[in-house]
Simulated scan of single mutants.
Amino acid sequence: MLLASSKFDELRLDHMSRSFGNVNALRDVSLTIRKGEFIALLGPSGCGKSTALNCIAGLLTTTGGSIYLDDRRLDQLKPEDRGFGMVFQNYALFPHMTVRANIGFGLKMRGMAKAEAARRVDEALGLVRLEGQGHKLPGQLSGGQQQRVAIARAIVIEPPLVLMDEPLSNLDAKLRLEMRAEIRRIHNQLGATTIYVTHDQDEALSLADRIVVLRDGVIRQVGAPRDLYESPDHLDVAEFMGYRNRLAGRLVRRDGARGTVEVGGVALSGALRGDIADGEAVLVARPDDVTVTENGANALTATVETIEYRGREFVGTARTAEGLEVVFHTVRPVSAGSTVSLSVDAARALIYGA
């Protein structure tokens, strides 16, 4: 029998709050997570995502609201009584214990019979692809292998929820990509429910079924990765989701769901987001939606300041006469100091109220 996760229907956060003195780290957070979902808590440092995870785990007490697993209230229980699996950023392995002993520690604390515990540890080792490594100490493993041990330790207890707090931030870029795929594979194979904290939008987009964007302790938007990538509800969410180009101007025309913003005397079109009044507005665009053009539409003129070779293309920064910085992509080289025409993809640009 393979490892599985405990059965439940939903985890419910009802107006959960956490204050540290006069600082509100979490404010009125309400969210329902369904069995089997992979949820990413995404946001910049200090937004409250790790605080939210620690409140769910019981490592921090809430100062308002409640947490329910189906009809069972959790926020009044100790961490060990909630039965969740936790994967920390720094692995938190016992350095003097073997891999097997680390994985089986939670089972030992629960008083599980040795034979059943050994079977589960074997299954967990196989699931994280560490067969034959059980006799080693953590210090004899690579960073990626140590993180696999931490994941195995979290899942071997067959928890209803697996909680992960930036588990890949200490790995190099290649290992992060490999472990990202492994985490999703393990989630699918277990039929698990996972809450994953990250500040990396690429991680959230590739892993999650739904993304929860937080800022200043408040949920700003919840949605599927594609929704957040293509249609952020708010300007701050758009900026965090990779819309690095922020071009301030005035909304001068509307045409249904589309509008035109005048930026430094140039008219740029995009999709209107939210209830925007006439007057000051901001058009945002991703760097890969801004390209060097000869006679392109929806374009502005700027002077190249930096240019970087990225293999298949170049990524540069340029500045308009009005001082606006624009990040762009191009397949042909341009030199710093040159003047270029930069076309903004009108189908992908978004317009928000200032």
Rank of each mutant, 00 (worst) to 15 (best):
R100E: 14
A101C: 01
A101T: 14
N102P: 10
I103F: 02
I103K: 01
I103V: 15
I103R: 01
F105D: 02
G106V: 02
L107Q: 03
M109R: 12
G111A: 05
M112N: 03
M112G: 03
A113M: 05
K114W: 02
A115N: 15
A115H: 13
E116I: 12
A117K: 08
R120G: 12
V121W: 10
D122A: 14
E123C: 07
E123R: 06
A124L: 09
A124H: 04
L127W: 03
L127P: 04
R129N: 14
R129A: 15
Q133A: 15
G134D: 15
K136V: 09
L137W: 07
L137C: 09
L137G: 04
P138K: 00
P138F: 04
L141K: 05
G143Q: 06
G144Q: 06
Q145Y: 13
Q145F: 12
Q146C: 13
R148T: 11
A150F: 06
I151E: 01
I151T: 13
R153D: 08
V156F: 03
V156M: 06
I157P: 00
L161T: 01
V162R: 00
L163F: 04
M164R: 03
E166C: 12
E166R: 06
E166G: 08
L168Q: 01
S169N: 09
N170R: 09
N170K: 04
N170H: 13
D172G: 08
L175Q: 05
L177N: 11
M179K: 04
R180Y: 04
E182S: 09
R184A: 14
R185M: 11
Q189C: 03
Q189L: 15
Q189T: 15
G191I: 10
A192F: 05
T193Q: 03
T194G: 00
Y196H: 14
T198E: 07
T198D: 06
T198I: 06
H199C: 11
D202M: 08
E203D: 07
A204R: 00
A204T: 05
L205Q: 08
S206M: 14
S206N: 10
L207C: 02
A208T: 01
D209N: 12
D209I: 01
V212P: 03
L214A: 08
D216F: 02
V218D: 00
V218W: 03
I219R: 00
R220Y: 05
Q221R: 03
V222Y: 02
P225F: 00
P225V: 01
P225R: 01
R226T: 13
D227V: 12
L228G: 03
